[in-house]
């Protein structure tokens, strides 16, 4: 029996829609493998840059931070209110770019980067980079932190 034309058109129509969804599935599969690859890459990056130290809140001052909150320090950490900061603190007495904490050869250096209310290491103003050891008190604005391993 010859194939009816309207049946043929129906088959084409169904094929069209099935292929559309197959295409979407292929895109999903490609995206999934892509995500797996990037996940593996970022896991490697995480291993390469271990957390070298912490800042622990000792006195939260006027902010809403809870004493005992820990922040991870990276080899080059910036603290401020800007969203580009490594540690973002949204307190009114924190400037957008407030403090930078850098690890050079195993020692932490704390430096104020143009804040309004200042940065202090053991109550010394850190206008230049000041070295800090674990246990030292770092005051950023009106919030006091203890440097910890």
């Amino acid at each position: 029996m010859p194939l009816q034309l309207d049946v043929f058109l129906l088959i084409l129509r169904l094929l069209f829609i099935i292929l559309l969804y197959l295409f979407l599935m292929q895109v999903v599969i490609t995206i999934r493998s892509d995500l797996k690859k990037t996940a593996a890459v970022s896991a490697d990056e995480f291993k390469a840059a271990p957390v070298l130290g912490h800042l622990v809140v000792v006195d939260s001052g006027p902010s809403s931070l809870l004493p005992g909150t820990r922040f991870d320090l990276e080899p080059k950490t910036t603290i401020g209110r800007a969203p580009t900061s490594t540690i973002r603190l949204t307190d009114n007495f924190i400037s957008s770019a407030h403090t930078s904490i850098e690890n050079r050869h195993g020692t932490w250096y704390v430096r104020d980067i143009g804040s309004m209310y200042g940065t202090y290491v053991n109550n010394l103003p850190a206008r230049e980079a000041l070295p800090a050891r674990p246990g030292d008190i770092v005051k950023i604005g009106f919030i006091s932190f203890k440097l910890a391993q």
Partner: peptide, 12 residues
């Protein structure tokens, strides 16, 4: 690879 199905879809 991703172009193959769209090409077939367009031809159909």
């Amino acid at each position: 690879g991703l172009f193959i199905i769209p090409f077939i879809i367009l031809l159909i």
